[in-house]
């Protein structure tokens, strides 16, 4: 799995490429911690190129959500599809995690808040 960082204004967008599983989801957790420490103004995780997630991956999403909520930093997850969406649906987390369809929408919501 690879994490590609880019920014739109003060919002950080992380494009995740590959599987988010037991062996690498900690990398995402580390990156999120790093971004929170550097006082990021908003975070969007792009799941367009993620086709597999396991429970440790979902765990990191829950962690990220709650960490950013505590820090009052807007957070969105975008482009969740296929089996990744199914896994999140099954665990009834669709409503819990801030998932929106497109980057445009996410940016609008995130920038509006910050």
């Amino acid at each position: 799995m690879e994490l590609h960082q880019r920014s739109n204004g003060s919002v950080q967008i992380v494009d995740i490429d590959g599987d988010l599983d037991l062996y690498n989801s900690f990398k995402l957790k580390e990156l999120v911690n790093q971004l929170v420490n550097s006082k990021v103004a908003g975070l969007i995780l792009n799941f367009q190129d993620v086709s597999y997630i396991d429970s440790s991956g979902v765990g990191v999403l829950i962690y990220t959500n709650s960490l950013l909520k505590t820090n009052n930093t807007p957070f969105r997850i975008i482009q969740v599809h296929g089996s990744v969406r199914r896994v999140i649906e099954l665990t009834k987390l669709i409503g819990f995690l801030p998932i929106v369809d497109t980057e445009e929408e996410a940016l609008k919501q995130v920038s509006g808040k910050s």
Partner: peptide, 8 residues
């Protein structure tokens, strides 16, 4: 517990 651990 750490938030990345949860259980169904």
């Amino acid at each position: 517990i750490d938030l990345d651990h949860y259980a169904t």
